[in-house]
Write a protein that binds this DNA or RNA. Structure first.
Length: 396
DNA sequence: CCTCCACTGGAAACCTAGGCTC
DNA sequence: GAGCCTAGGTTTCCAGTGGAGG
């Protein structure tokens, strides 16, 4: 027993030699200059600069796929802006609309960044959206706040009606003498098409596009980060190359590349290796994929979990009708209310977006049209993660 | 070329939880 | 505390639809 414990500690001590500053590879870390994003950084700075003189900057839209540096550029510019703010009136709020979940929760998150009166705090539910928006506007007006609002994944705010966005883009009178500038960030290049023309004209006053990083650029970024994060010589060039190549095949996602390098370092450390080799990168790549699933599964609503379990009964895939029957059985067995097929079909679509299952519409001629559904989670993981939910244990 | 299946996916109505007002 | 209001989830209804079999 003590032997193994000693061994673990000894290994850890040895492994420590790899990292120098692990922070440089964390998702929150934004370096003081972003290579290959100089133009965009300057552009954003120019648009937001008027805030330093107390006037309202134009609203701004940042476009580009995940991991192309949109959030990093915004964060960096905001950081520098705040450090030079003599007016002391600028306040910034960052909200990820997808993570917030609903429109209401997005607004609630925004209000958290404001110095709200105690009795005006936003409760978890019960208020109308316009009431919440009005409270936010009133606070901005009363405290003369110059708010720069970063709405990451803003496309999730538009799906149903863009009433809230419209209100926010036209809030001038309600917020005076304060103001509100929106920096919208979107991964979806076609997001604009879904946007109401009136909203678009004021929200997209300025637009900046972020192209994907090339393999060479990723390589350069990784090399720079690795220099800060790791001790000299523990990351060979071949590791960087592999990491960059893997990320480049995923549409030039720098966040993913940096994540992978960090996890690879952790793997190498745990295994007591002397360097972060290509093997560590491969293991990291696997681990990241597993982690995504293991994080998403437990937070799923009960019904979605049951549907996932039902899907797991069909090893080589199934279709909507068959899956619905299996789901119905499971739900009855566990005493859960049975949803309609329309709803189940909707949840299937949601799980597809999450990447937990694969659901492609196929036509089988006379045998109709359906979705071919396949589980993308392996049964071990499923049993381990969903098994924690006592109600579902015996369904697996 | 036409049919017709087994759904898909949009739209609207309905339900529920929870804060608000008086 | 009664009655009102809304967001978000669900149900109800239904007009499409891709393509194998006729």
């Amino acid at each position: 027993m003590t032997d193994t414990v000693d061994a673990i500690f000894a290994k850890t001590k040895k492994g420590r030699l790899l990292f120098q500053d692990r922070n440089a590879l964390s998702t929150e870390f934004v370096p003081d200059n972003l290579p290959f994003r100089e133009a965009q950084t300057e552009n954003v700075a120019e648009v937001l600069a008027p805030a330093l003189l107390g006037s309202k900057p134009s609203n701004l839209l940042l476009y580009g796929k995940t991991g192309t540096g949109k959030t990093a550029v915004a964060t960096l510019v905001i950081r520098k802006l705040l450090s030079q703010d003599d007016t002391r009136q600028i306040l910034t709020a960052y909200v990820n609309c997808r993570l917030a979940g609903t429109e209401y929760l997005t607004l609630a998150r925004i209000s958290e960044a404001l110095p709200m009166d105690k009795d005006k705090r936003i409760p978890l539910t019960g208020l109308s959206l316009s009431e919440v928006a009005n409270r936010i506007f009133k606070t901005i007006s009363k405290e003369k706040i110059h708010l720069i609002l970063i709405l990451d994944e803003i496309d999730y705010l538009v799906n149903t009606n863009d009433d809230t966005l419209y209100k926010f883009t036209r809030s001038g009178e309600d917020t005076a003498p304060g103001f509100l500038t929106i920096v919208g960030i979107s991964n979806d290049l076609r997001f604009k098409e879904r946007l109401n023309a009136r909203v678009l004209s004021s929200l997209g006053e300025e637009e900046i596009v972020f192209p994907p990083y090339t393999t060479a650029e990723l390589r350069s970024i990784l090399t720079a980060r690795a220099k800060i994060a790791f001790r000299l010589g523990v990351v060979p060039e071949s590791t960087i190359n592999l990491c960059a190549a893997l990320a480049a095949s995923e549409h030039g996602d720098a966040r993913r590349a940096i994540d992978m390098l960090r996890v690879a370092g952790e793997v190498a450390e745990r295994e007591g290796r002397q360097s972060v080799d290509e093997e560590s990168i491969r293991k990291a790549s696997d681990k990241i994929e597993r982690d995504v699933v293991e994080k998403a599964l437990p937070s799923l609503p009960l019904q979605a979990k049951i549907i996932i379990i039902a899907t797991s009964k069909f090893l080589s895939g199934t279709n909507t009708g068959e899956l619905y029957l299996a789901y119905t059985n499971l739900a009855k067995k566990s005493g859960v209310e049975v949803l309609t097929q329309r709803r189940v079909s909707g949840i299937i679509a949601e799980l597809d977006v999450l990447g937990l299952i694969e659901a492609a519409v196929v036509s089988k001629g006379r045998k109709g049209r359906t979705k071919h559904i396949k589980l993308l989670v392996d049964n071990d993981t499923l049993g381990r993660v969903i098994g924690e939910d006592a109600r579902l244990l015996d369904l697996i």
